[in-house]
Design a protein around this nucleic acid. Sequence first.
DNA 1: GAGTAGATCCTCT
DNA 2: GAGGATCTACTCA
Length: 201
Amino acid sequence: MKKVPPAFYEQEDVVQIARDLLGNVLVTAWDGVRTSGRIVETEAYAGLHDKASHAYRGRTPRTAVLFDTTGAAYVYLCYGLHQMFNIATNKTGVPHAVLIRAVEPLEGIGVMLQRTGKKKLDASLTRGPGNVGKAFGVHRSQSGLSLQSSELFIADDGYHLDAAAIGTSVRIGVDYAGADALLPYRFYIKGNPYVSGKQKT
DNA sequence: GAGTAGATCCTCT
DNA sequence: GAGGATCTACTCA
């Protein structure tokens, strides 16, 4: 399994990156405890042009990671309890991001169960961004960490995803963004039980 | 099964 | 001081 190279995150089209991330594997290895899962749902946030993006209002201490780094994690706390895991993309000065909304667990399922306080594996373990953050043990203190790090990275294990298996929809939970809430920036693998929300077939 | 309220704390105004 | 890129549980049917 090889890490996705920095050049991948430097592409200009954040929507393309979000789509291409489907099928790749998210890996965390905090203190040698490895957990991984296949990415089955993502959302693109197009920085300054996108009202739904945190970066829309400009640079703040929290969003500095989006402006200053590429191919790094952007983690923040939502509603006081959910750690949301994002990937900062494009180049320095362009605060694009891809939110990882759902993954399918591969390795370290026992650890994930422990972290989330669940007894057995079911589709809710890593469905929804808040659960992904919890299951993978990400924390906002890890915001800004490079995805070339040995503790946190995206890997390509050769899994082939057919274009016809990719579904598209509007993003979730961004109704406040007006017209931008209608942009088709959410991508998911059709029929995968770990995809959150309702899916069209 | 569907709809709604509550949790809970950091961030920006 | 207000609100948020959400999830869960509980109510009602």
